[in-house]
């Protein structure tokens, strides 16, 4: 009993320790989320009290140093670049997933997935640098400086493409094989199966993937900062320069102080809440197999 008992109890102790440590570690992410919310709210609080939320909407312009705190132009720019990027990236992204699942030879499909997964890791400053050096001069031929809403939309669409392609691939993979077989048994061709069986069946998880991509696009900072031109006005055309909320934070945090700094934290809080809610919804809506 003694020798045997000791071994057992040591093992029990070790097992308990690892259990405790791993539970604690699992809760760390949630703790960090609370910390982020707490610190950003604390820093944002002075601005929420003094100029107050109403001023962020009623002030028409953003000149924080002379007391103009309008966030609407930048909010508009964030929304426009995101919607534009997703509209551009969704059709080819979904088409690429269809190709991988139903047309490509298995070896090519494997290669394609790997290539997209690798290219998805390209740093955003590389996209920004490419947009600045290669794309902006091409856009400038149509007018303007080349650093514009349109340039930002195109660069952001490129960065969003891998996300949409990979998420759509997973969405198509999650539908029941029986449906596909049934479609084939009814004499549908590949396109018939893809358009009338697969796409409708995967609709909600495809939408969830697009929502995830949009959430990521709204938060993208560096590439947009480098190609959008950064003038905090409402854009009058596709070729006008814009400044997004994220770019504004990156540009002004370095020298902002007092209420100016506090307002940047307000926009950070706004961004975090605006992104986290759709993200949570989309992840819950996605099939269990690809986030588990």
């Amino acid at each position: 009993m003694t020798w045997f008992g000791k071994r057992i109890s040591f093992r029990r102790l070790a097992d308990r320790a690892i259990e405790f440590a791993s539970t604690l570690a699992a809760l760390t992410a949630a703790a960090i989320v609370l910390l982020i919310l707490a610190f950003i709210t604390i820093e944002a609080w002075p601005a929420l009290r003094d100029p107050g939320p109403a001023r962020f909407v009623t002030d028409r312009t953003w000149f924080p140093l002379s007391g103009q705190f309008g966030l609407l132009p930048m909010l508009t720019a964030s929304v426009l670049t995101t919607i534009g990027a997703v509209l551009l990236a969704a059709p080819p992204g979904i088409a690429s997933a269809l190709w991988v699942r139903y047309w490509a030879p298995p070896s090519l499909a494997w290669f394609h997935r790997r290539a997209i997964a690798i290219l998805a890791g390209t740093p955003s400053v590389v996209f920004g640098q490419w947009g600045l050096v290669v794309l902006a001069p091409l856009i400038a031929a149509w007018g303007g400086s080349g650093q514009s809403l349109l340039t930002a939309v195109i660069v952001l669409a490129l960065m969003t493409l891998p996300t949409i392609a990979l998420a759509s691939d997973a969405a198509l993979g999650s539908i029941d094989d029986e449906l596909v077989r049934g479609g084939a048994a009814l004499g549908l061709g590949r396109w018939g199966i893809a358009s009338r069986v697969v796409l409708p069946a995967a609709r909600s998880s495809l939408l969830a993937g697009i929502l995830l991509a949009a959430a990521r696009a709204v938060g993208e900072t560096m590439a947009v900062l480098m190609v959008a031109g950064n003038v905090p006005n409402f854009p009058e055309s596709l070729l006008a320069p814009v400044r997004t909320l994220t770019a504004n934070m990156a540009l002004e945090m370095g020298y902002a102080s007092a209420s100016h700094r506090s307002i940047l934290f307000v926009s950070g809080l706004l961004l975090m809440v605006a992104v986290a809610i759709p993200y949570l919804l989309a992840t819950i809506a996605r099939p269990r197999s690809d986030h588990g």
Partner: peptide, 18 residues
């Protein structure tokens, strides 16, 4: 799990502010 989902969603510039 919810903590992980939300943390993954936070934009990197917000991590910078934090």
């Amino acid at each position: 799990r919810s903590g992980l989902i939300v943390l993954a969603a936070v934009p990197s510039i917000v991590f910078g502010l934090f």
